[in-house]
Write a protein that binds this DNA or RNA. Sequence first.
RNA 1: GGCAGGAUAGCUCAGUCGGUUAGAGCGGUGGCUUCAUAAGCCAUAGGUCGCCGGUUCAAGUCCGGCUCCUGCUACCA
Length: 687
Amino acid sequence: MTRQLLVTSALPYANGPIHIGHLVEYVQTDIYVRFQRLRGHRVAYMCADDTHGAAIMIRAQKEGRTPEDFIAEMAESHQRDFAAFGMSFDHYGSTNSPANYEQCKHVWAALRAADLVVARNVERLYDPVQKTFLADRFVKGKCPNCGAEDQYGDSCEKCGATYAATDLIEPRSVHSGATPELRESRQLFVRLEPLQPFLQEWTKAGTLQPEVMNYLHGNFLAKPLQDWDVSRPAPYFGFEIPDEAGQFWYVWFDAPIGYIASTAEWCAQNGQQLDDWWRNPECEIVHFLGKDITYFHTLFWPAMLKTAGFELPKKVQIHGFLRVNGEKMSKSRGTFVMARSYLDQELDPGCLRYYYASKLSPGIDDLDFNTDEFVGKCNSDLVGRVVNLASRSAKFVKNVGLSATYPEDGDLFANAAECGDRIAAAYEACDYREAMRLCMTLADAANEFVEQRAPWTLKKDPDRAQELQDVCTVVLNLFRQIAIYLTPVLPDLSQQAGELLQSPIESWDQSRTPLTGTAVSKFKHMMQRVDADKVAALFTAPATDAATDAATDAATDAVANAAPAAAGPSPTLAKEPLADQITIDDFLKVDLRIAKVLAAEEVPEARKLLRLTLGLGGGETRNVFAGIKGKYDAASLVGRQVVMVANLAPRKMKFGLSEGMVVAAGTDGGVFLVSPDEGAEAGQRLH
RNA sequence: GGCAGGAUAGCUCAGUCGGUUAGAGCGGUGGCUUCAUAAGCCAUAGGUCGCCGGUUCAAGUCCGGCUCCUGCUACCA
């Protein structure tokens, strides 16, 4: 039975180039799509750039250009990289398109009609000079969590904390520099609670991975769903809400609708009907996405689809993050590798596709890019085992071709044909790791056969020419079977196998019938071995792509060069590497003072906190919460001197305001307060 | 601390409904081969299945407790 599938990858955000972490998802999706096509199903693979939001607007402003100009450049960059890695999109659109605006209006009207949109007045920051409300990203100030300067109003790039823009310390408008004031703003919300019974059921319907279902039921569906804030005040780069002047749809409203809009554009260009793909219960909608955007796709999105009368996804396949050699990708460590850098090193995109395939399971676990393993797998699996089959047999039959009838092979071909069902089931379940493992066992069996039949010996005896041809016929057919099974992962290899045997690979079922009596082309190398130095070069060069966000660089590069090639590596230094050099001015920003502990008490409900009252002399005191409970006895601290950061931005904590920080050394082992030598007085500054 | 997911060979991971002697790949060691891109084949070592208890004729698998790791979150400033 021919199935009909509409498959999507999450839309990459247009604020930066594609990196190797992105590629996990697109490789995963593309393999699925190519597999389904090879099986003869009708597939539409849809993607687009996600272009809206304040971040894009600010980037464009910073570069002195229009957002449209900026996203056009990103769209080109993304599609160029995707093409190089073999992504076979049927259509690649943009959320900033007329088609998307049409679909957004449609979904919005449906939400209105279902009485799910409500307006409420909320307090928002307002720029009194520009006379506009400010989106989170248009307010900057000190991070309320770590005190880092110049952070946006939604999250801190330094410490990763998330907060409301109203929490920023010393906030100022990005537009005018003015201090924003709080004003009432009319905001639109989508009520999700009426859809909660539906979501309770849908999330349990087998569409989601079990871990994801547990996550949703444990974190969101256990209590009433909160209303979703879907409007953002102007100025905002996006679509203005038709019935609410001055308000724009939040980027996460119009982004997933981009899946539909992209399909609509493709339909218009290819004589298809949109309803045949999005309102057809026979069409399987499949989404691939990363775990960070789970709830947008498993709560808001199904709610929108349901309300607007679209079909719901049959499968939502969520993957984990890419780590590099066991650690998070990081610009400062040089592990934030752009797709372009990989291509610039002239590494084979097929190798990365195969490597990811060999690691991808149906689960949401992170997957690790291990450089040694990458080199090993590509070279020994692909070159040493698979391609080598052709390499060690094709030359013996290039003049005579394949035998006229398929020879006795000890059921190798028949067994491999049967194994194809298991491989197909693994692809279907997104268990590519299992599929690759099975392919390699087939290659092992084939190599063993070569070894036993030793064509290089047969070649020496003219009387055994037929036997030689038969052996090579078997080996080349086994090779072709594997190439068919690997076609979703390695389309280039598949094509070369087709050329070698002068029979293009077009369908999975070709793996069931051996080729006989046909000519064999001259063998050409199909894959190059991976040069380990080139792989190493990927991770030593810091990411200097011009399109890389300068602001993020500044923040994340702070710990660059953290591991100098010192003779005796210190475990302590390794755990917490020396920070980058700073200037004396940087140091002077930190006001370190001698303080006397005037009072100390345990916070009973807190696990780690003591409340300290610190004296700076002259009646000046600070209330500070210190995470040293259990390490220091409160009573024994009273009267002693400590060092504190006196000008740290106050931090509101559950038990009160913390007005500074006590300096202490400590790794996981313990915490050690720092005290001055005898004679120091409370209030003295440290220079 | 809360929620979630984990812990099986040196590394990465399978292990179905509880069922014989717990598997694979990579890596290691020893040998063979020389057709092939320094590729291939054979053999072999390597395990207290995180810990404790329970259910059972039988537990890596089920139940309870604990330890540690990862992610999100929180008061670890």
